[in-house]
């Protein structure tokens, strides 16, 4: 019983890092421009397919493929921002919500036409690791490590590089940043690019151990919303911790109640946190 609990918890926590990575992307975009990116899910799915194609058609190691996927994610985010978001950034919320949702429809539509909706699978294994009663597939361990690495890299970027500092300035006060000569349009595009990059990478990591379809991004997008709210919207580090929290919950809950109750608990918690602590569980006030 305890062994089972431990291994289910470990599974959940490892997965939680990857959830967290996807949510960090969403949270970054929100933090910089208060846009909820409804195209987040399809981007995650495209990350899965990018890794898949490079692995299967290019014969590339999936983890090397991730670097290419990250680059494509960045460019893709630039594109989405330029085409769909920039023009409506100052319009009422509904406009950005629907603009990103339109991108969602386009991606899912094209994706369905190209890849169909049947499941795909990356046939790749690194064996598994056994520690006492816990058995962990190595791919999950590597995925968690990858998520940590990418988040750390984002932090170094935000705090120790010029464009990173500019992003933080724009997030803090766009008008003031503009007055100081920061080209906010580029910085916003860059932030959006980084956000989608992290989503695509998270998708790539997930694809190494779960089968997926073009629609698979949807559930992760919803989880990202929950995680962002748990960790505090606009707080990327909070999002990673929120991811761990959600992963841990998903690992623990099934030992106490039927697994189908997991979403009830998750979204119930989500609404409660929004209502009573909208700055997130980690937020100051």
């Amino acid at each position: 019983m305890l062994g089972q609990l431990l291994s289910s918890l470990t599974d959940g926590l490892l997965l939680g890092f990857v959830y967290g990575l996807a949510a960090v992307g969403l949270s970054l975009i929100w933090g910089v421009m208060t846009v909820i990116n409804l195209a987040h899910g399809p981007v995650i799915a495209l990350g899965m397919f990018g890794t898949y194609l490079l692995f299967l058609k290019g014969g590339c190691n999936p983890y090397l493929a991730l670097l290419a996927v990250a680059g494509m994610g960045l460019v893709f985010g630039f594109l989405i921002y330029g085409v769909a978001v920039h023009r409506v950034l100052n319009a009422p919320h509904l406009s950005t919500l629907l603009a990103t949702f339109a991108v969602n429809m386009i991606l899912i539509g094209v994706g369905t036409a190209v890849f169909t909706t049947s499941p795909h699978n990356i046939d790749f294994s690194l064996g598994s690791l056994e520690v006492g009663p816990i058995t962990v597939p190595a791919t999950r361990l590597v995925a968690a490590l990858g998520a940590i690495l990418f988040t750390a890299a984002l932090y170094l970027f935000l705090y120790f590089t010029r464009p990173g500092k500019a992003i933080r300035a724009v997030a803090n006060n766009r008008k003031a940043a503009e007055l100081m000569g920061i080209p906010s349009a580029w910085i916003l595009a860059l932030s959006f690019g980084l956000g989608t990059m992290l989503a695509a990478v998270a998708g790539g990591l997930i694809s190494t151990f779960f089968p997926f379809t073009i629609l698979s991004g949807g559930p992760y997008e919803l989880k990202s919303f929950v995680i962002c709210v748990l960790g505090g919207l606009g707080n990327p580090l909070g999002a990673l911790i929120g991811g761990l929290l959600l992963g841990g919950l998903e690992g623990l809950i099934p030992t106490f109640m039927p697994v189908s109750w997991v979403p009830v608990v998750e979204f119930g918690l989500f609404i409660l946190v929004l209502l009573f602590k909208p700055s997130g569980l980690l937020g100051a006030k």
Partner: peptide
């Protein structure tokens, strides 16, 4: 929920939708 404004309200309604679906399934 209507105490929340703007995008926070929109997010809460997404949560309500998912919670309701999960609840009814059980």
């Amino acid at each position: 929920v209507l105490r929340l404004r703007g995008a926070y309200f929109a997010l809460a309604t997404i949560g309500i939708n998912e919670a309701a679906r999960a609840f009814v399934s059980n």
